[in-house]
């Protein structure tokens, strides 16, 4: 057992592990809501319990799971399904880039498990706690990370399993698909803080609605390309405008 643990998890400092557990605990209620919503959405769309359980335990990415549900329901081509999840998950690439120094020297298996666990909340707590820590990976950092990750994983999976099992019983007119869209909106809203992001999102909304008839749900990816292009353009123009204002002062 110890050997298996050491293969997948680097040495952890026990007090730091407990600190990580305590830091994640207050998030439990929000994680539960998210997990139940995701599980219910999967069951409500008609996913069977075994497939739902397999998905929650392996994929472990609520927003990506909710995002691909409508695609899976119409049996969209797999490359479109995967590309959609990939785009929704691109924020994790930034997380990985900014916390890499704590994990990059671990063994391959340890890095794979750390990556699997490095979701939104875990990353947020970890990067707050160690923002000024010069260590390039230490048992204290790993302990904190895995303590938080354990709580996040257990609470999420328990809630998600409950949702998968119960969701099939909820009548359609309750509109539980709306709960899934609300959950995705909760991820989206904090991303819309600056003008370029708002412009990009507005364009993505319009394009995605206008292209809803495109085959294979390709409208989604068209909307993303259009939105990102406009956001980058808006940022470029905004930056030039700001620089010009500075130079006139």
């Amino acid at each position: 057992m110890t050997a298996v643990r050491d293969t997948w998890i680097p040495p952890v400092d026990k007090p730091a592990f407990r600190e990580g557990v305590r830091a994640m605990m207050p998030m439990s209620l929000a994680i539960t809501v998210w997990g139940v919503v995701t599980g219910v959405a999967m069951a409500n769309q008609g996913m069977s319990v075994p497939i739902g359980l397999l998905m929650t335990f392996t994929v472990f990415a609520g927003s990506a799971q909710l995002a691909v549900l409508p695609l899976l329901a119409v049996r969209a081509p797999l490359p479109v399904v995967w590309a959609t999840a990939l785009v929704v998950n691109l924020r994790f690439v930034i997380f990985a880039a900014s916390s890499r120094r704590s994990f990059v020297d671990l063994t391959l298996r340890q890095r794979i498990l750390a990556g699997y666990l490095n979701g939104d909340l875990g990353f947020a707590l970890f990067s707050q706690r160690f923002a000024d820590d010069p260590d390039r990976g230490s048992p204290v950092q790993w302990g904190y990370f895995y303590g938080g990750a354990l709580v996040n994983w257990v609470v999420w999976q328990a809630a998600s399993v409950a949702g998968i099992v119960l969701g099939g019983f909820a009548p359609e007119e309750w509109g539980l698909e709306l709960a899934a869209y609300l959950a995705l909106t909760a991820v989206l809203v904090p991303m819309c803080v600056k003008f370029p992001a708002i412009a990009g999102v507005a364009v993505a909304i319009v394009v995605s609605v206008v292209t809803v008839d495109l085959p294979m749900r390709l409208g989604l990816l068209v909307a993303v390309v259009a939105g990102v292009t406009v956001a980058m353009l808006a940022e470029h123009l905004h930056g030039r405008h700001a620089r010009r204002r500075e130079s006139t002062i």
């Binding site: 927003s63 909710l66 995002a67 409508p70 959609t84 785009v87 929704v88 998950n89 691109l90 924020r91 690439v93 930034i94 698909e177 869209y181 995705l184 909106t185 991820v187 989206l188 991303m191 819309c192 370029p196 992001a197 990009g200 999102v201 364009v203 993505a204 909304i205 394009v207 995605s208 609605v209 809803v212 409208g219 989604l220 909307a223 993303v224 259009a226 939105g227 990102v228 956001a231 980058m232």
Partner: peptide
């Protein structure tokens, strides 16, 4: 990479 997930989420929710 920061803009893409926001646009993708919007493009999933809006048509839905």
């Amino acid at each position: 990479l920061r803009y893409a997930p926001a646009c993708a989420l919007a493009a999933i929710v809006a048509p839905g």
